[in-house]
Amino acid sequence: MNGSEHKLPREPHRPADDEPTVMGMDERAAWVQIFAFAITTGAYLAVVIPRVLNDPIDEVEWVVPLLWAMGLSIVATILGSIFAGIGGAIHLTIRGLDPDSELASDSRDKAIARHARLRTYWATPVVALGALILAMLDVDTFWIGSFIYVVTSIGAIADAVVRIRAYRRGFVG
């Protein structure tokens, strides 16, 4: 092993075998997805649960918090991906590697995304059927809306977790 050339920053060079790299864009996107959904859903519940405990159900103001939560999760996902991309590019440049080739999406990323979708799509029919049953039972719209939102978030987080596991621990067809 040669000595001094492993100090950072390094000159641009073609990566040697097994040279460490940074997390790929798709894996970063999965982390962003987890954080965006977990934090905004948590915030929604933090706002709404006290109201449920204190007010009669049909007076609970849940629509505004929900719209905020949905809007923020979209913004957080977009901004998170942008920053993750910039962070990755900077990190790679310091290591002397080319962001375009190291961070690109390839067929493995598509295969992992497909695998995650096949493992977590069950959340969607659960949401639709559950909401339908709640509507039939004539419960307050707060319960229906919150159910749709929270279970959908769980599904999105599950999807991201499956993807990250596939990247880290390995994934076979």
Binding site: R117, T124, P125, T141, I144, Y149
Partner: peptide, 21 residues
């Protein structure tokens, strides 16, 4: 999973309708 994709749009529409009362 293809069907679930379609159903997901329905849930989104339902959620929007619920917020609009």
């Amino acid at each position: 999973s293809a069907g679930a994709g379609v159903a997901g749009l329905g849930s989104l529409a339902a959620l929007i309708m619920l917020t609009l009362d």
